[in-house]
Design a protein around this nucleic acid. Structure first.
Lengths: 270, 270
DNA sequence: AGTTGCAACAGGGA
DNA sequence: CTCCCTGTTGCAAC
């Protein structure tokens, strides 16, 4: 569940399910996913009470009352799962929190992720989250004005900027596909060559695609906090290589852009 | 007189002509070529006695006894000229040193250069000179072993590295031309694709070209400390666009490489 | 013909 | 499908 729609739902579910629970113990099987040595991680989390959980880009921020935060990033993919009192825990995980009421939170990374903890007062020195850019699901922050100002003066291609978490937080190589298609933009389009109307279309594509996916509970191939899949699966061009474009019928192509792959309609996206 | 052969001769001439002279006054007409405000520059130089002068890459280091150094870079081009007692000073200059015996040193930049002064104890914090790389006219430092080690692990093109002053100090876009030709290397050749024998050829080309040019007093279109031109003018391919290659007769081309121009024999240099 | 600093870009590794 | 770090490259400015 890597990108903002999945993280947004996960954070909401964690917020509802975990608020008020007391962390009794933590089992860390892969220490390198921590930001501090285990002996410093334990006292940051053990004995703390879960407060609110929110999504910030691809990160879940979880309050550990009274003085710390737990910061979760699932990287390329993975699951954060709830286990009720008496429920069996998974046999494989990187990190497992046990709460004093018998419930638990397990974290599993497919490839690589982060389970960070920080004093709330030190949060601003947590580089990976302190430098996050615009939050596209926050209507008061993510305005067209702010989005356009973020693009101003940039000369490179549009795709890397949209995937740069310090510019706009939460878009990865999955949701970017249909966002670019809906904006009719080729991933390599230079930013100065994007007209005002295209910028507006792009802004709406970002907001619309992410909100709709969040409302549908995220991607169908990802699991939520209770192990249930999302209902978003109807990509327009993403992962549709060889199939016809839903707009013009041209054959969708998979091209390499920088170090990532992009699925485009070669006719619609320029 | 921008590159190492010219600077080398200039420094030697300054060393002979100025040693022991006392700086009586300085006139700075372009303050932005200084590294410190004029009010801090004056006390660093006035009342000081000239010690030795040496070339370090494209810079002249001049001792100001007892406690400072004057650092001169002529940038894209310019002259440092000696004026004997009673001789007329040029009407245009950026910096003019008057010595107490009536002689003077004028500095003129065609475009942009640096006239820096620093306490000798603070020289290591003068970034532009503290980070200079290998000195190709210093036989004990510039060995094939050191040169080859400098190239090891690099993956980019050969020309930018040879012109990078922090890697090897003193080569500019003039002498690089025949150095590459003598080594039979195209400016864009990737460093990992340069064979051992070619590295050796390149090493000898650098050392040979610069030493020969220095021995000839530098470029014929540059002036020395006494306003006299150098005697080096027989380029092999440099600035010979459209003329035949001296080795194979193919027509020499001027191509753009990155942001600089390179004259190559398209047949000899690969 | 010079250098600096920054943005953009690419590759390797956790 | 992730990030960081490093080195490289291109561009603008002094």
């Amino acid at each position: 569940m890597p990108e903002l729609p999945e993280i947004y739902n996960l954070a909401n579910q964690m917020d509802s399910a975990l608020k008020g629970k007391l962390i009794g113990s933590v089992d860390v099987r892969q220490e390198k996913c921590l930001n501090v040595p285990l002996r410093r991680f334990r006292p940051l989390v053990i004995g703390k009470t879960i407060g609110g959980a929110t999504a910030r880009g691809k990160w879940v921020f979880m309050e550990l009352q009274p003085d710390a935060h737990f910061l979760l990033s699932l990287g390329m993919g993975g699951d954060a799962l709830y286990h009720g009192p008496g429920a069996t825990r998974p046999e494989k995980y990187q990190v497992l929190f046990e709460f004093t009421d018998g419930s638990a939170l397990s974290i599993v990374y497919w490839w690589f992720g982060y389970a960070h903890a920080s004093k709330t007062a030190d949060l601003k020195s947590h580089k990976m989250t302190a430098s996050l850019g615009l939050h596209p699901l926050d209507d008061s922050e993510f305005t067209y004005r702010a989005f356009s100002a973020m693009l101003d003066g940039k000369k490179g291609a549009i795709k890397p900027v949209l995937m740069n978490q310090t510019q706009i937080a939460g878009i990865g190589n999955v949701y970017i596909q249909d966002i670019l298609f809906r904006a009719k933009l080729h991933p390599n389009r230079r930013i100065p060559e994007i007209a005002e109307v295209e910028r507006k279309l792009l802004f709406r594509a970002i907001k619309g695609n992410l909100k709709r996916a969040a409302k549908l509970g995220g991607l169908a191939y990802e699991k939520d906090f209770y192990g249930r899949p999302g209902r978003f699966k109807d990509f327009l061009v993403g992962y549709k290589e060889g199939q016809p474009c839903p707009e013009c019928g041209a054959t969708i192509e998979k091209i390499r852009t920088g170090s990532t792959a992009t699925f485009i309609c070669p006719s619609c996206q320029t």
